[in-house]
Design a protein around this nucleic acid. Structure first.
Lengths: 327, 327
DNA sequence: AGTTAAAATGACAACGCTGTCAACAAGCTA
DNA sequence: TAGCTTGTTGACAGCGTTGTCATTTTAACT
């Protein structure tokens, strides 16, 4: 019985022959270890949690599916934990979750993953976690963070527009509190600087990552456009870009002939507009898979190390019909 | 110890005084029963599964949140199980899930919940389940099904258009294989009949519940519109309605002045179009809450019966700016 | 008060695994 | 070959609950 446990857990010091015999029986009986028993008996748990407060359903589903696919492979169970980090009950909810099922660890997704109040709480509770963050990797956090390099992606998408002759490029920002907003804005600024183009604060509109704020943003930026002479708008995400697209159309502006518009994230949104959006593809399912893998290696300690984990992702530009050369 | 167990499980034959003492300690220590141990020891399990194959992220998130909120209240754990019912591994995946964590039961969501191959499999495996289905309630399935009366909602939304003077009403259908498609079409037909309006098959376009098929549908229905003289289009869901809206705008048709468009479901989609869509609000979170409650009562047997479960929901019409009187 | 039934509580095994530690087998050295 | 080390396997307890059944307490009667 204990030997079977050793085989299942890929522990060393099982003879090859014994291993084969056990595996044959496992396959024949389609044996699956009982998770409840494993969680109860073992020192480490086979349950991980995914915590999110992002209201974007597409994003959440992608993150879930990525983590889930790794969980399936590795025999882990996933507990999903939607929440709002402003909620007064947040702390109590965390503790309830942790007490009910002992967790191997948590995957935290943005924007909640940016809150130090949460990481402090988890540190206190001695809970492992991996954070998905918008930003550029630093040296020290390589084993607890997965970075999405929004800075670089914004740099590249801005460069794409600049090399197509655009100089007056509007930027519709997301929520100021989100790290992704400042990262994307910095990337935009850096690209301008590297192409000897003057940054103009009037080209920046403070949006809220919502469709409606994209509509408002485009209206604001394009109102009396003789002044700013904007020929391209960079949306902070696909929803706002879609909003900008819609507003432009209402104003009778032809896309991409008179105005180029780009999005960010490559959510289904970017393909449900006409023309389809040029955007930066963010492989959220892959990102979350790696987050899960990183968490697994942390909790399993030295054994079964997974060396191919990517901790920094850069969204790649997808050029579609909403952007073109300046005319 | 056993007495605490009795209090936690609200079993009878615990003296009021004892109950209070235990509860006081429970509150003081913020005691939470360990789920793994409960699942292992008890005859019934505290884990339910949510199975879905619907590609609509908004829908899935709503269903998850509804089930999850009940699970939290009742101390259950949720295992999410995305799948595709055409997948050859589906059966094996189910069995793996069931063996890994003994389940109290499953909540099945459409369109997968319509597949008898799945319910047959679960019957064989002796797994409890509750299905969410599009359709009108029948007498026999009241304790295993939650119905969403798409028929009636489509009837009402069609009536809304009819009473606003529209007679030539286009209908963009969803996938033919989905029950919701035929239910909604039947409701549309019934409303026409009750208002002495001739049903015309040329007014019906076979879409696929996607934005693009909505675009195509509107184009097809409105092409050479002198012939059909369509003044309103009923979208089979919000995505297709949004597509139809977009196509109409490209064709220079004013909404709602020249054409009324309605959606179905009231997903965020319907609020991200301009004008916002008149649609039928489907309270997916409430629906899935009731599905979870129904499942709980099934597995708990006679004790803790929940009598206020609604097993039939009718989406309610939300009138927004995309529809108006015929002009 | 004495008897009996009913209600409330407690003792203990069991759920299906894993961790610990003891026992045994195999390979090595002298 | 004995004597050692290392590698491999097995016996057994325990994880935190619940189900079963025995025991104690309370209530309801003569």
């Amino acid at each position: 019985m204990k030997t079977v446990s050793r085989v299942i857990n890929k522990e060393p010091s099982v003879r090859k022959k014994t291993y084969d015999i056990v595996m044959e029986a496992v396959n024949e009986l389609n044996y699956q270890p009982n998770l409840a028993a494993r969680n109860l008996a073992g020192t480490s748990s086979f349950t991980v949690g995914l915590v999110y407060d992002n209201p974007n359903a597409y994003y959440v589903i992608d993150m879930q599916n990525g983590v889930l696919s790794r969980c399936k492979d590795e025999g882990y169970e996933l507990v999903i934990h939607p929440c709002t980090y402003t909620d007064a009950n947040m702390e109590a909810d965390f503790i309830t979750m942790i007490k009910r099922s002992r967790l191997a660890g948590l995957v935290l997704t943005p924007p909640l993953s940016e809150q130090s109040s949460i990481t402090n709480l988890l540190d206190e509770l001695n809970i492992h976690y991996v954070r998905v963050l918008s930003g550029r990797p630093t040296d020290d956090d390589q084993d607890t963070c997965i970075y999405v390099n929004d800075y670089k992606a914004a740099y590249e998408i801005t460069t794409h527009l600049l090399t197509h002759g655009h100089e007056n490029i509007g930027f519709i920002c997301g929520d100021k509190e989100h790290k992704s907003t400042s990262e994307r804005l910095e990337g935009y600024k850096a690209a301008l600087a590297d192409h000897n183009t003057q940054f103009n604060n009037e080209f920046v509109y403070d949006g809220k990552y919502s469709f409606e704020s994209g509509v408002e943003g485009a209206k604001a930026l394009l109102a009396d456009n003789n002044k700013l002479a904007i020929t391209a708008i960079l949306g902070g995400n696909d929803e706002m870009a879609a909003g900008a697209l819609f507003a432009s159309r209402l104003m009778g502006i032809a896309i991409p002939e008179q105005l180029s518009i780009t999005g960010f994230e490559d959510s289904p949104f970017s393909r449900q507009t006409w023309p389809k959006l040029t955007t930066a593809h963010q492989a959220n399912d892959v990102i979350s898979q790696h987050a899960a893998r990183l968490l697994f290696t942390k909790t399993r300690g030295a054994r079964n190390q997974d060396k191919d984990i990517i901790t920094s992702f850069t969204p790649s530009i997808v050029i579609r019909e909403s952007s073109g050369p300046k005319q």
